[in-house]
Nucleic acid binder design. Structure first.
Length: 442
RNA sequence: CGGGGCAUAGCGCAGUCUGGUAGCGCAUCUGGUUUGGGACCAGAGGGUCGCAAGUUCAAAUCUUGCUGCCCCGACCA
């Protein structure tokens, strides 16, 4: 991508309305613009990052065995009346009517819709277990949206729904998804802690919030330091793994303010390992059994010919919220360095030459070479002052920069990892380094 | 939803108290000088001062209503 042809409106001044780092940075580097309260446009840079996060989430879902589909944003009130939530969901649900005076709503979640799809199409235990997910925009009419995309009204969410024949099977699905979430957040270079949670309007009797630690978080979290020592990367989707996860996270204490039990905390956690931190909720998983399958009549035949209401769970990840959450967690010493899995570009070429001079030609030669090797590259081909270019790219947070200027010999480039010293390398070595960093295979 | 604040050029703001020709910085455009960490000079374009009504010879400025946005609180993925 040539910067001169891109849409990247970087600002020097931003409104004092933006209170937290992620909101400020996203405005400054032209990732988002507010459209109305709690509703945002995603500009090319922000959208690229959003899509990359979506991709990580999708890949991990697929690996877990969940199957992707897509449900609409607009739903009819009918099924919500069947479940009883049309009345109980309250003001957070955006409702409206079409020209035939039919009551519609912009979906805040999809339990009803998916349960309807299930009941109309699945009749046998042989089709179970089943896990379906989609990544779709949701709308919840927050009383007071704030903190940019962290707490907005329109947001992108991945929601998975599990269907099982028994409570035992359903709980295996629950832990399957818990493992999937741990792997997902690890890919995003985040430490996410599953924490026992209240079930709220979704309902049910087993629920965990996934909290990542960040100073600007809205919820306070009490935890045992040891809970952070868990590496899910090598765990397979097996019952042994589920047991291991369950054991680890029930062994060590973690709770948000609402669920915090001070006496228990003091009792089972040593003074030394007690931590009280701020956190951001980035995911939430629920087991709710037959809460929806009963009122909506989602029934399968069991092996012995009995009718059984399926046991269900639902599992959400705030994909758009994660964009802000990653910034809050990763922003350090005034530097935002994007995790490699979601960086908008693999590498930025800072070309200090003038149009068509030998330096520019060298920079563009490198640009072509990197593209040929399947890297996502952005090249600054503007006539801005060097200092301007340096500042902007430091701000944008692409992990690697290559500086092409008059200081270097013909064959050499300055290679810099954000926040570290530059080193002089030749093109072969450069490509090797990047291939290793991004695990790109030709 | 309760309490408070704001709305002036693309962005950030001053001007409003005390009514009298619309300002500043950044950005943009033109020309020139610069070019290794947010350059400089000269010039230019860009505004029905959120909307509506009222008071007045005269309203960005005073009054009323409306709309939008933000902050604090309670609520929430």
């Amino acid at each position: 991508m040539k910067l001169s042809r891109y849409f990247l409106p970087v600002l020097k001044d931003i409104s004092s309305d933006a209170k937290i780092k992620s909101h400020q940075l996203m405005l400054r580097i032209g990732m988002i613009r507010q459209s109305s309260a709690g509703i945002y446009s995603w500009l090319p840079l922000g959208y690229k990052i959003l899509k990359k996060i979506e991709k990580v989430v999708r890949e991990e879902q697929d690996k877990s065995g969940a199957i992707e589909m897509l449900m609409p944003t607009i739903q009819s009130s009918d099924i919500w009346r069947e479940s009883g939530r049309y009345e109980s969901y309250g003001e957070e649900m955006l409702r409206f009517k079409d020209r035939q005076d039919r009551e519609l709503l912009y979906g805040p979640t999809n339990e009803e819709l998916i349960t309807q799809l299930f009941r109309d199409n699945i009749k046998s235990y042989k089709s179970l277990p089943l896990m379906l997910y989609h990544i779709q925009w949701k709308f919840r009419d927050e009383i007071r949206p704030r903190f940019g995309i962290m707490r907005c009204r329109e947001f992108l969410m991945k929601d998975t729904y599990s269907f099982d024949l028994s409570k035992e099977d359903a709980q295996k699905s629950y832990f399957r998804m818990m493992l999937c979430y741990l792997k997902t957040f690890q890919k995003l270079e985040l430490k996410a802690i599953p924490t026992k949670a209240e079930t709220g309007p979704i309902g049910g009797d087993l629920s965990h919030e996934f909290i990542i630690l960040a100073d600007t978080g809205e919820s306070e979290i009490f935890l045992d330091k040891n809970i952070l020592n868990f590496d899910p990367s090598n765990l397979k989707y097996s019952e042994n793994s589920f047991l291991e996860i369950s054991n680890h996270y029930s062994k060590y204490y973690s709770a948000t303010t609402e669920m915090h039990d001070k006496d228990k905390f003091e009792k089972i956690t040593t003074k030394k390992s007690q931590m009280i931190k701020k956190g951001i909720e980035v995911g939430h998983i629920f087991y709710f059994g037959q809460k929806y399958s009963k009122p909506l009549n989602a029934i399968v035949n069991s092996k012995d010919g009995k009718n059984v209401n399926v046991y269900m769970g639902s599992y959400g990840i705030g994909v758009s919220r994660l964009v802000g959450a990653v910034i809050e967690a990763k922003y350090n010493n005034n530097i935002m360095k994007w995790p490699k899995s979601i960086t908008p570009f693999h590498v930025a070429i800072i070309n200090l030459g003038k149009k068509n001079d030998s330096i520019s030609k060298k920079a563009f030669k490198l640009y072509d070479e990197l593209l040929k090797n399947n890297f996502e590259v952005i090249i600054d081909d503007t006539e801005n002052n060097p200092s301007n270019k340096f500042k902007n790219f430091d701000l944008i947070g692409i992990p690697f920069q290559i500086i092409v200027g008059s200081k270097n010999k013909d064959e050499e480039f300055e290679f810099k990892e954000l926040g570290k010293d530059t080193k002089v390398v030749k093109i072969k070595e450069l490509i090797n380094i990047l291939e290793k960093e991004y695990k790109i295979v030709k």
